[in-house]
Computed example of a mutant assay.
Amino acid sequence: MGTPAVLGWIDTAVFTVLAAWYAVRAVVAGGWRHRVSSALHLAMSAAMAAMPWTVLPAEPQVVLFSAGALWFVWAALTEPAGGDPLLDGAHGGRVGALYHAGMMASMVWMAIAMTPASPAMDMAGHDHAAMHAMSMSAMTGGAPWATAVSGALGAGYALGAVWLLEVVVRQAVRDPVEPGRLLDAVAAALMTLGMSYGFLALMT
């Protein structure tokens, strides 16, 4: 990811806060479905926090986030209509579960796109400055079609972030809810915004 250091630190800070939030939710959320969903978001936040600084191994990410996508598809199929929105943060119910399935699938794509194009490319020897200066052409996602996919995902998540920010405002001002629900909405909006940044940064 060829991103300026200051943006990398902002990305890391945001996703570290999100990881802490979902760690709490994984412990205190009612029901095992809520806890599994929060644990998957915790793993996703941790991966995103590390991405500006290093290239994580692709294989475990592909396995984990593919399983996460299947989990949320299963949640969408089994969640009753109008189910507890805490399962899916601000999105709620079946639509929210499908949204998060797509987000997990996006993490699979990001892991693949950030895989070094050459097997001989050793990331362990790069310092932070070198990581930021690295061209996306050195990554699998540097192919023109792959860059277009990442750009489309980044734009889509940017639109999603705008929608979720409206949800936050509505829940905070026009339709007040308990603090936990509101913080879930804020976390969902921040995660969506961070995903947008991550995919757009892949293009640089």
Rank of each mutant, 00 (worst) to 15 (best):
D11V: 14
A19W: 05
A19D: 05
A19K: 05
V24N: 13
R25W: 01
A26V: 04
V27N: 01
R35D: 06
V36N: 12
L42K: 07
M44A: 11
S45Y: 07
A47D: 14
A50E: 13
P52E: 02
W53V: 02
W53H: 02
V55C: 03
V55Q: 01
L56E: 08
P57D: 06
P57L: 00
F65R: 01
A69S: 14
L70Q: 00
L70F: 14
L70K: 00
F72C: 11
L77A: 09
L77Y: 00
T78D: 12
P80L: 04
D88G: 15
A90Q: 00
R94M: 06
Y99F: 12
M103A: 14
A105T: 11
M110P: 09
A111R: 11
A113H: 10
S118P: 04
P119D: 15
D127V: 03
H132F: 09
A133L: 14
S137T: 01
A138M: 12
W145R: 05
T147A: 06
G151S: 13
Y157G: 05
A158R: 02
W163N: 01
E166R: 09
V168R: 02
V169W: 08
A172W: 09
V173M: 03
V173Y: 08
D175A: 12
V177I: 10
P179D: 05
P179M: 00
P179C: 00
A187V: 08
M191A: 15
L193C: 11
G194Y: 07
G198I: 00
G198D: 11
A201L: 04
A201S: 03
M203Y: 07
T204N: 15
